[in-house]
Write a protein that binds this DNA or RNA. Structure first.
Lengths: 347, 347
DNA sequence: TCATATTGCGCAATCGTTTGTTCTATTATA
DNA sequence: TATAATAGAACAAACGATTGCGCAATATGA
């Protein structure tokens, strides 16, 4: 089965008996502007339909310097947190006729950098990135090259760039305050990747909540170094081996809490009888877990939607660009994983 | 900040003092073939590096008719089942320098068809599609246009196209046989979208397992019509209202089983004491559910990897294409959601 | 009737690469 | 020394679409 020949503007032009510029103008809806007669316009449109013409986006992009394509770089698209964001970006993008080129950076800064290169050489109109690490010189380069960029989930203080993130600080504060209200005073925190804004903000919230109560933070109860499941397991193991044992665990991600649950189970402990837990990231399964999980829900759908809208705004305004930063509130979802202690206690 | 000027072959050419064809040949590694002198070659390479040149993939694609880009159409990228497949496709693709344009068809055939159009006009080298519905005339059109295509998760009997799917038949057979071995005889099946190969094969397995035991299938125990959570809830409600109540439920997807769990909980029933359940789709959280779930695991990572490899093979062989169909085995993962009944019984 | 507007459309350059062909030195061969 | 062979690189035509400019033909106005 031979590759079907592509229909070009010239094909239509010669079929109708006009020049290809006329066809182009009709098909891009500029017939009024260039005063193409109605008769010609209709003839061209009909012929194009008959021949099954659709424009070559490469040629168009080469000429117009606009591809209607955005690049999306995500650390792990199989993580529901990111895939929900990705979905909503794609849905918004397609609404404006924009295609999304997806790149999974596999939590690897080097791959992220290479992806940026590749996407730039594909002439995307803009980039949405969930950055992996602390390194961001490549992001600076994007910005100074003038390519529209929105970063998501994480941000960098000294980077003049639009972003959309959750209010990680407030989310952490509320979780810890809830623990306090249930009389917990010894709370372990299993953190994610250090030096990411996400982690820094959550830790700050954690600390501030303690301060407000006038209670010092036990630094040895802050453990962990990544958002993955394995780190959750290891972190929980460490926390549970302490004596006195903390009465509660605050897990910085959905995967961390799954790992922690393994550890808790291994130690023969029950949630919340023996240990309470709150996890960042609401998930469809959160309510169905052995103990329905109290979570800090982030607005993932909205994050994606807003990210695209910010990017779209940047792309379509040629004047000064407002590098907006959007912070979305979190919501504490109350379930069964936190036990009310009789007395304010550390054990 | 003005858009930085793009470096072109001509820029390099005039900087070095050669023609742009020479530069092109050097940079595409054809310097031997066209006997470019070592001196020129090195000079060109160095200058290209200094200027920070990287090729314009649009222009290249326009000229060569190869974009090193594939299109991927998925019904719901936020579903972990699909996002895991997508991830592995993307990872394989990038290994060969290929970019992936993602499209979420939102379980809508019309959007799927439009996506195909759009991706074709972007000149992708091939397409991987998880088709939504029964309609597949647009897939036939792709094939007869000569564009490489691999379909994933579902297939169509009378479509000559490479595909990779799970062994849904055998997966269902094993699940039902396990139910039988635990003395269940009255098993409700909450199916997914009817008329999809996935559903048809699972139903066939369900029936055949019954036949082998010489037991007739109670048709009223087959309910449902989509792979979503809501359908799981409704389906379970229906099954649980029957009297006698089935002793077991076989859920056709991870979302269906989540929905079913809601219904079961609402009815005040316990898994597995009051009702046993097996779910298609292994998930990271399966073992942490209120009752750790016995599941039929599919090889999602492998599915993605193989899908890309089949596509890659099609793209790179210009001769006759082997439209291979790959069927991957499933695995029954035993946990706690199935109770052993004392006697073969329907109640 | 003649000058001027206006209508309707074509010409040709351009975007950045690739690639078949040609062209000019230089070297090898007889 | 004359001729052929070869090395090294330039020319120019694509690829398909867009767009500034120009040019006829017709319509309008005086």
């Amino acid at each position: 089965m031979a590759q079907n020949k592509q229909i070009t503007l010239d094909n239509i032009a010669s079929a109708v008996g006009v020049s290809c510029s006329t066809v182009s103008r009709v098909l891009t809806g500029q017939s009024k502007k260039y005063r193409i007669s109605d008769k010609t316009r209709e003839l061209v449109q009909e012929t194009a339909r008959e021949l099954g013409y659709f424009p070559d986006q490469l040629a168009r992009g080469l000429r117009t310097k606009r591809t209607n394509t955005i690049g999306l770089i995500i650390p792990d698209i199989s993580n529901p947190f990111f895939s929900t964001i990705a979905r909503n970006i794609e849905i918004q993008a397609r609404k404006t006729g924009c295609s999304t080129v997806l790149s999974d950076s596999q939590e690897d800064t080097q791959l992220e950098i290479e992806s940026v290169q590749l996407l730039q050489s594909r002439k995307v109109d803009g980039l949405i990135i969930c950055p992996v690490g602390e390194e961001h010189s490549h992001l600076e380069r994007i910005i100074s090259s003038g390519l529209p960029l929105v970063i998501v989930d994480r941000y960098f203080k000294n980077l003049d760039c639009a972003f959309v993130v959750s209010d990680n600080y407030q989310g952490a504060v509320e979780a810890v305050e809830y623990f306090f209200s249930m009389n917990h005073r010894s709370i372990g925190y299993i953190q994610g990747r250090v030096n990411t804004s996400v982690n820094i903000e959550r830790i700050r919230g954690f600390r501030d909540a303690y301060s407000k109560q006038g209670i010092p933070v036990d630094e040895s109860l802050i453990v962990g170094d990544s958002f993955g499941k394995r780190n959750g397991y290891i972190g929980a193991k460490m926390l549970l081996s302490k004596s006195p044992r903390p009465t509660a665990i605050f897990a910085a991600s959905n995967l961390i809490s799954l790992g922690a649950m393994s550890a808790i189970q291994e130690e023969g402990l029950k949630i919340p009888e023996d240990i309470s837990i709150i996890s960042f990231d609401e998930q469809p399964y959160s309510e169905y877990l052995a103990t329905p999980m109290t979570t800090v829900a982030q607005q993932t759908s909205e994050t994606g939607e807003i990210a695209f809208k910010l990017l779209h705004a940047q792309i379509h305004q040629d004047g000064e660009q407002s590098k907006e930063g959007i912070v979305l509130p979190t919501e504490l979802v109350f379930r069964k994983s936190v036990k009310k202690l009789n007395h304010p206690t550390s054990e």
